[in-house]
């Protein structure tokens, strides 16, 4: 259960799950699986999960929380390469703060001792050219900015 070290402005998470790769991949693509784990608490459930699992296909997930308006996220699958890579756009519907902004999620699944490493990157600016630059890596150059903000420097 680790996050990458250089994760100031690049949203990147990695974790090893003690399960075979196909099973982990399928948990990301089967509607009943997504409904089970995308809503992580008793209070917030994921439902109305629709998945058209092919490149160019759409998905939609709704989050239901008592007393709150439903939150919906949806997008298009850009890459579906079982069991190694899933890439899709991720767009919140209103009234979520970032509604309408298209972002891109890249999930890579690799076999490692102990199971499957899931490597997730969530990119804010989603054009293919920028994806390429992101995939080449930020290499932690923005740590200094983070420290400046922490110290309240102008």
């Amino acid at each position: 259960m680790t996050d990458t070290a250089a994760d100031t402005l690049q949203l990147e998470l990695q974790r090893v799950f003690a399960h075979p790769r196909e099973r982990v991949f399928d948990a990301w693509t089967r509607p009943e699986a997504l409904a089970a784990w995308m809503g992580p608490t008793e209070a917030i459930r994921a439902e109305s999960v629709c998945v058209d699992l092919r490149e160019g296909g759409h998905y939609r997930i709704e989050f239901v929380e008592a007393g709150e308006p439903r939150k919906r996220v949806e997008g298009t699958y850009l890459t579906v390469r079982r069991p190694e890579r899933l890439m899709f756009t991720w767009v919140w519907a209103p009234p979520f703060p970032d509604a309408g902004v298209e972002t891109t999620v890249i999930v890579d699944f690799s076999e490692v001792p102990g199971g499957t490493r899931v490597h997730l990157r969530h990119l804010r600016f989603a054009t293919p050219a920028v994806c390429e630059l992101h995939l080449a890596g930020w290499n932690g150059t923005l740590d200094k900015f983070a420290r400046r903000l922490e110290h309240g420097l102008p």
Partner: peptide
């Protein structure tokens, strides 16, 4: 938090 839930689900 989703990764935690995915772990529990698996």
């Amino acid at each position: 938090t989703r990764f935690d839930a995915l772990d529990a689900y698996l």
